[in-house]
């Protein structure tokens, strides 16, 4: 079969002619069936192309949307990785308000040593709390050794007993020293225990001094849904990745707690929350946290976080 070309320049006619030529069994005139078939395909193409384009565009949008998950992870990683010093010695005062508005005060010193991911002893971050006020609990100490992938080790020292005991079975979402904050909220959560979703990449946060900062709004959902507070929506300052505001939700999805940073300062190059408040909306209690002094990179060694160190009298 030879292809018979027509040169009238009309593209469709040209195409039609080509198709007719290829599908014809005879030289010369195309069949009526072939002509109809070509028309059908042309119409089909006219219908399909805009649909396909629309699909491709929407797929691109969806691909952009799906970028929010890695973006949420990225923000969470930045929060986790922000510089908090190799070690820190922070003196703080806690004011605990009960549902009647009565206030109790506790002062304590928190020593912490940042752990490495692949530490030989399997210990992550180390935290030692020592209470100095009120007087009847003066010297009471708590040592927390983070064990990635399992429950933390906690040791308790009661000066009235003069003995150290290991407390087993405590959870990271437990109350931090009887306050409305949890250990997790003080020391940061284990990154891998949550999934993250960036709710707003262009959020803002207005500090108590009235200045507005660019921020991210990040939703964290615990992989273990049985936790007391399996979800939180945090506002993270975009410039320093400090969580400056958070809403913590209970298993019912009810907002149970609200966290607000009132004062943020850079000390020795480390952004430090100097004043914060956590309100428990269900229990109607509140904890105010005021950092009185903060020192970083003081050269604390792992030995400062031993049971023996815990037993040492309060300074």
């Amino acid at each position: 079969m030879r292809l018979k070309l027509r040169d009238d320049g009309h593209p469709f006619q040209y195409l039609q002619t080509r198709l007719e030529a290829t599908s014809s069994r005879r030289d010369g005139e195309p069949s009526q069936f072939q002509a109809r078939l070509v028309k059908f395909f042309l119409v089909l193409i006219l219908l399909i192309v805009p649909g396909a384009l629309s699909f491709l565009l929407s797929a691109e949008e969806s691909s952009q949307a799906s970028n929010t998950t890695p973006m949420g992870d990225w923000v969470a990683r930045q929060v986790d990785a922000r510089d908090t010093g190799r070690d820190a010695v922070i003196a703080m005062r806690m004011r605990l308000f009960d549902r009647q508005g009565r206030q109790r005060e506790r002062t304590l010193e928190m020593q912490s040593l940042r752990g490495t991911a692949a530490a030989a002893d399997g210990i992550g971050d180390r935290v030692l709390l020592r209470f100095s006020y009120p007087n009847d609990i003066r010297g009471t100490g708590l040592l927390v050794l983070e064990r990635p992938g399992r429950d933390d080790d906690r040791y308790l020292y009661l000066p009235a007993l003069g003995r150290v005991r290991r407390i087993a079975g405590a959870e990271r979402q437990e109350s931090f020293a009887g306050s409305d904050l949890s250990y997790e909220e003080i020391g940061g959560r284990a990154l891998e225990d949550y999934t993250y979703e960036l709710l707003d990449a262009k959020a803002t946060w207005t500090a108590p001094d009235g200045r507005t900062h660019a921020a991210y709004r990040l939703r964290s959902i615990a992989k273990d849904a049985s936790l007391t507070y399996p979800a939180a929506v945090s506002t993270v300052r975009a410039d320093n990745f400090v969580v400056v505001q958070a809403e913590v939700f209970d298993r019912r999805g009810t907002r149970a707690k609200q966290y607000q940073v009132r004062r943020l300062e850079q000390i020795s190059g480390v952004w430090t929350v100097m004043e914060a408040v956590m309100s428990h909306e269900v229990d109607r209690t509140r904890t105010e946290l005021v950092v009185t002094t903060a020192r970083y990179n003081t050269g604390l060694s792992p030995e400062a976080f031993s049971r023996r160190a815990l037993e040492q009298p309060a300074r």
């Binding site: 009120p134 609990i137 009471t140 708590l142 009661l158 009235a160 007993l161 437990e174 109350s175 009887g178």
Partner: peptide
Amino acid sequence: DGDLISQELFVFGLSEDGRR
């Protein structure tokens, strides 16, 4: 001992459930 009672009650209230 009064301090021991305070410290033991303090220990009890260290956990979320215990505090409640």
